[in-house]
């Protein structure tokens, strides 16, 4: 069965916080269906009892000592801020949320 990505595009685009115009959505649906068709071939392999690989390194994690290091000067912290107010990063309202288009 072919994967029809069309139904998923809006949902996934919302999860990923990506505004896509209509054309992009159409193209995305078509391309992603094809790509996922290929990717889905991994399902043909029997992986019963196989541990997943998240890291190719099998060493345990290193721990650093609890020592403080100098932080960045404030002007460096804020130098790339697209919108700032005083010494803060400023963002638009976090509650006035429009309904996601379905």
């Amino acid at each position: 069965m072919a994967i029809d990505f069309a139904e998923e595009v809006d949902h996934v685009a919302h999860l990923a916080r990506l505004t896509l115009d209509w054309e992009e959505k159409v193209r995305m649906a078509e391309q992603l269906s094809k790509i996922l068709e290929t990717a889905r071939r991994v399902q043909e392999l029997d992986t019963t009892g196989i541990e997943p690989t998240a890291h190719v390194i099998t060493l345990p994690a290193v721990l650093r000592e609890d020592l403080t290091r100098p932080s960045l000067p404030l002007n460096r912290v804020l130098q790339n801020a697209p919108t700032r107010q005083k010494d803060f990063f400023r963002v638009p309202s976090i509650t006035a949320v429009k309904q996601v288009e379905e």
Partner: peptide, 17 residues
């Protein structure tokens, strides 16, 4: 929020997207 392009928006969700 912290760096990079910002397209603006009236609310946080539309700004993100």
């Amino acid at each position: 929020v912290r760096y990079g392009h910002n397209a603006g928006g009236d609310d946080i969700e539309s700004m993100f997207s």
